[in-house]
């Protein structure tokens, strides 16, 4: 991986504004303390940590769209009840997911599931996964 330079252009600011609007959260408030990352049950599966995800949004790096963190968020609200700046990261993750989903690009295809899994999984699992991963 090479170090990429950021030029803090207007597009960067626009991306930040877009995510802030969609999530209803003042993303610039994040002080990068890392409480969210330390609290996140999914963090060990992620490619970037939740705080890093917020940082990328703050800097307007739309490359955040290529990462997996938002898709691994389980909306467990652990970070929400702990963030010392009162940010609701679950909303920021949702906003990022929505950007993709609203382009009619789904993250999963339920048809990929094995018969056995389909049989085992409870409805709430299927419905919530569709709600979070498909448009």
């Amino acid at each position: 991986m090479k170090i990429k330079k950021l030029d803090l252009s207007e597009e960067n600011v626009e991306f930040l504004v877009k995510i802030s609007d969609l999530s209803g959260e003042t993303v610039t408030l994040c002080e990068q303390c890392g409480t969210c990352s330390g609290s996140c049950p999914m963090v060990s599966e992620m490619d970037i940590t939740p705080s890093q995800m917020v940082r990328m949004v703050q800097l307007g790096e739309s490359e955040v769209m290529d990462t997996k963190a938002m898709w691994l968020c389980a909306s467990c609200f652990t970070c929400t009840v702990r963030c010392p700046r009162g940010l609701d990261l679950s909303k920021i993750a949702e906003a990022l997911r929505q950007i993709t989903l609203r382009k009619a690009v789904d993250y999963i295809d339920i048809r990929d599931l094995s018969k056995d899994e389909m049989k085992r999984l409870p409805q709430i699992a299927l419905i919530s996964a569709m709600r979070k991963f498909t448009g």
Partner: peptide, 20 residues
């Protein structure tokens, strides 16, 4: 007792959830 079990991630990746 308050740690998330992985919720609907169980559909996407069952190993993630079984690890939790």
């Amino acid at each position: 007792r308050k740690v998330c079990c992985g919720s609907y991630q169980t559909v996407q990746d069952k190993k993630v959830v079984s690890n939790l």
